[in-house]
């Protein structure tokens, strides 16, 4: 969402609207994580009054979807691909192969055994 997006580009990898969006979601989630956890705690705490817990439920459902951790998705830092990302390198498999062959990934070589 536009209100969360940084005014100036603050991303160093492959730039793509989807990559920027994912980056924004990560930042927003990090910012609001404490609040989310507090609300979740209140909701689950049976020693608090029912009304307070209901109020917390209400507030939690009203929070923006960008504050959810499930909105975050790993994307390829070299090509922006959204599926089949190797979590070790944050890259799609083809980009991984290209970069490994070019020697850009430290220590990764062609294997033969």
């Amino acid at each position: 969402m536009a209100q969360f997006r940084a005014k100036k580009l603050d991303l160093g990898c492959f730039v793509n609207v989807r990559n920027i969006r994912d980056h924004t979601k990560r930042k927003v989630f990090a910012e609001h994580e404490a609040e989310r956890q507090a609300l979740r705690y209140i909701i689950r705490n049976t020693s608090l009054s029912q009304r307070a817990r209901a109020q917390a439920q209400l507030q939690l459902t009203q929070m923006h979807c960008y504050t959810r951790s499930t909105q975050i998705k790993n994307r390829c830092i070299m090509g922006g691909k959204g599926r089949g990302i190797m979590s070790d390198f944050n890259m799609g498999r083809y980009q991984f192969r290209i970069n490994a062959l070019a020697g850009n990934i430290p220590g990764v070589k062609k294997a033969s055994w």
Binding site: A34, E35, Q37, A38, R40, Y41, I42, A52, Q55, A56
Partner: peptide, 14 residues
């Protein structure tokens, strides 16, 4: 989340 919880519980709506 203690601090945040305290802050929320002391907030006006709560």
């Amino acid at each position: 989340p203690e601090e945040k919880v305290r802050e929320l519980l002391n907030s006006e709506p709560f």
